[in-house]
Nucleic acid binder design. Structure first.
Length: 547
RNA sequence: GCGCCCAUAGCUCAGCUGGAUAGAGCACCGGACUACGGAUCCGGGUGUCGGGGGUUCGAAUCCUCCUGGGCGCGCCA
């Protein structure tokens, strides 16, 4: 629909003597009386052509060749050109949608370009919390979205399984282990205090018994750290699975050290003279890349900072042949962005090869009262608990009906209360409802197989025309979502589509006494279902046949 | 002190990258087909778009200052 107009408009604009036409904006006007699609292009041209916008609009409108396509082409307001399509055109486009299916809905904007999306990447020192859930929902939806748009997408998870934090986890588990055994123990001062630490200790008792009752932590360290890591990682994967999120690659930080990747990355920076020693530590010349201070890679005690392995990790990503890298981070890491971009430049690549998408913080409330989400503190609400309490689809939907950069307060009480009335069901119900219409049709002995031949010209009610236009507008929403990397646009589109389907259903019967009309309406329902399923799939939401 | 993000209806949020009279859902009130699922539908109103200034044909959207909130600014991760 939009593409057809785009092409005709471009020709018309060239026809009035504009050699290099600007980008032609096309939008759906807010009022139906303003036509189906609209363009402000005449107003944009007014300045350069030094003519009144309405005159230009008249000229362009007169030059649009689209006989058989437009019912009306009108100039309105300060200089908008409004287009209203002929019903025949809408019907033939709907026919195409039904025939081509998702091919009609998607556009190949990626052209097979490789893109890696890294998200969640939580420290394996504690369970996933709600903030991770937001990253997971957005990252998963964005991945599906870009995949549908013809990108080759890799979903990546980075596991920080090296360094002092995981050692501290092991030490905390060790202390709990001794505690459970009734042995004297000293809990590390900054240790992890959540219940999950004791859970791990219990699991160790189950599998290793009292094998380590006489060991010091130094002796038992490897076992405790590895066991704890494996268990945390397994639980993380379980949580993500129950949230409907999957990953293609799990990059271990430890592996980057063991394979020599970190060493290599540092050497390559060194070879470029971007590294120096001072005060016993090794520094990266971040200031040469716009940072306000240089950054330590290796501390004076010999330990590497996270930054060191991040350099190696991103070097490895780039060498993986990706055209674009996307990192989805919590907004509390925003200060880290220039540092990492600097490194990418230092490694000899374009800075904008990496796009960091910040997902704003989620503050958790329960009945208006703040709930702490600190991993070190004893009490916090995990993603798992929220999924169990509120449900995966509802939780995801709450995340996907907001711009990622909007701050979000997630009130558990409100979410649960809203759960029964949640808009996600409104959308899913449209799908389920269509399924029962088809079941009903079959019961009535109406064939639902041969809808290809249906005469869609039968669809003349205004609710039907509106619905068709909305369906044909899906590619526009899709394109905007892809270009802006904003999956939430799909969410809003689906709510609007369902918001047209339900009233239609209540006004007009699909299965009627007239076979021709029935076939056409069934075909329309099938198209609605197709689009809803496609949208829900992209968002990572389920599309149950019955609810 | 410096930097990033946010502020739109009572609440939760959209607003298609500068366009027409700023929109949904929730909540509240009233109503609906002996037929395809009432998780539905129909009707009812609400705005100094946080505030001031600027840019221009035109600003919720861009610039600037201010206010308020969130988050960063380590040889932490």
């Amino acid at each position: 629909m939009k593409q057809t107009l785009e092409k005709l408009l471009k020709e018309a604009v060239e026809r009035i003597g504009v050699k290099e036409p600007p980008h032609i904006e096309i939008e759906v006007p807010k009022e139906e009386s303003m036509g189906d699609l609209s363009t402000p292009v005449a107003m944009a041209l007014a300045h350069t052509l030094k003519r009144p916008p309405r005159d230009i609009a008249e000229d362009i409108a007169g030059g649009v060749s689209g006989e058989g396509i437009f019912e009306r082409v009108e100039v309105a307001g300060p200089g908008f050109i409004n287009f209203t399509f002929k019903k025949d055109f809408l019907h033939s486009e709907l026919k195409r949608l039904l025939k081509e299916g998702t091919t009609f809905l998607r556009r190949d904007l990626g052209q097979g370009r490789k893109i890696q999306i890294e998200f969640v990447s939580a420290n394996p020192t504690g369970p996933l919390h709600l903030g991770h859930g937001r990253g997971a929902a957005v990252g998963g939806a964005l991945s599906n979205l870009l995949e549908a748009a013809g990108f080759e997408v890799e979903r990546a998870y980075y596991v920080n399984d090296a360094g002092l934090q995981v050692r501290l986890l092991g030490e905390s588990v060790f202390a709990r282990y001794r505690e459970l055994r009734g042995l004297p123990h000293e809990f590390p001062k900054e240790g992890y205090r959540g219940d999950y630490v004791a859970d791990i200790a219990r699991a160790i008792m189950d599998s290793a018994g009292d094998k380590y009752k006489d060991s010091t932590f130094d002796e038992a360290q490897d076992f405790f750290v590895d066991f704890s890591l494996r268990m945390m990682l397994d639980e993380t994967k379980e949580d993500l699975a129950s949230f409907g999120i999957t990953f293609d690659t799990w990059q271990s930080e430890r592996e980057l050290y063991e394979s020599g990747g970190v060493k290599q990355a540092i050497e390559s920076l060194d070879a470029k003279g971007l590294i120096y020693e001072s005060g016993g530590a090794i520094w990266f010349r971040a200031m040469e890349f716009g940072e306000d201070k240089d950054r330590v890679i290796v501390k004076s005690d010999g330990h590497h900072t996270y930054f060191a392995s991040d350099i190696a990790y991103h070097a490895k990503k780039i060498e993986g042949g990706f055209d674009e890298l996307i990192n989805i981070w919590g907004a509390d890491h925003h200060g880290y962005i220039p540092r990492l971009e600097g490194v990418i430049e230092a490694l000899g690549y374009e800075r904008d090869k990496l796009k960091v998408l910040l997902v704003q913080m989620v503050s958790l409330l329960r009945g208006g009262e703040p709930v702490q989400m600190s991993k070190r503190a004893g009490e916090f609400v995990t993603l798992r608990e929220v999924i169990e309490e509120v449900g995966a689809d509802t939780t995801k939907f709450i995340f996907l009906t907001r711009r990622p950069d909007s701050h979000l307060t997630f009130d558990l009480e409100a979410a649960k209360a809203a759960s029964a009335e949640n808009p996600v069901y409104y959308v899913q119900y449209a799908n389920a409802r269509i399924n029962s219409i088809f079941a009903h049709a079959t019961e009535q002995g109406v064939s639902t197989d041969a809808l290809e031949g249906a005469d869609l010209g039968e669809l003349e009610e205004k609710e039907e025309i509106r619905l068709i236009k909305k369906l044909l507008a899906y590619p526009m929403a899709f394109e905007a979502a892809v270009k802006g990397r904003e999956p939430h646009r799909i969410t809003f589109y689906l709510q609007e589509l369902a918001g047209m389907f339900h009233p239609y259903y209540n006004t007009h019967r699909v299965v009627t006494d007239e076979p021709g009309l029935t076939a056409a309406r069934l075909a329309l329902c099938r198209a609605v279902r197709l689009v809803i399923k496609e949208g829900l799939r992209i968002l990572g939401l389920s599309a149950p046949d019955r609810m």
